[in-house]
């Protein structure tokens, strides 16, 4: 089996596990968001590398070229990147609000239990 021929997928798996580990093992909210970003980036690479055809040109119509890479994954991932940026923005904004309310962004040390008491 050609292990090195699939090195792009090894990169994907490595990044995916790194990000996933950071999300589940870290308590700091900013680190969790960084982990989420790495996790999402790995998926972007999975899609984009699947669209590449070896020996093909970039998908722009040109004379003398008849083998193009698949542009669809790029378009999909453009959408997913926008979603990722929006998620990061919302997550960081929430982290700021948590810090205002609790004075800490250490997620694993905070508790939701005293919910219900209206807080103004």
């Amino acid at each position: 089996m050609d292990w090195l021929g699939h090195f792009n997928y090894w990169v994907v798996i490595f990044l995916m596990m790194t990000g996933f580990y950071a999300v589940i093992a870290r308590g700091n909210m900013v680190k969790i968001i960084i982990g989420l970003n790495i996790f999402q980036t790995s998926v972007f690479i999975l899609f984009i590398s699947a669209g590449k055809i070896i020996g093909a040109s970039s998908p722009v119509l040109e004379k003398g070229v008849d083998l193009y890479s698949n542009p669809l994954p790029h378009v999909l991932i453009l959408t997913a990147i926008v979603v990722g940026v929006a998620t990061t923005a919302v997550g960081l904004a929430l982290a700021v609000r948590v810090r205002e309310n609790y004075g800490s962004i250490q997620d694993d040390q905070l508790t939701e239990e005293e919910d219900g008491e209206p807080h103004t």
Partner: peptide, 8 residues
């Protein structure tokens, strides 16, 4: 309105 809303 609760303190924990952003955390949740």
């Amino acid at each position: 309105r609760s303190r924990a809303a952003p955390l949740s």
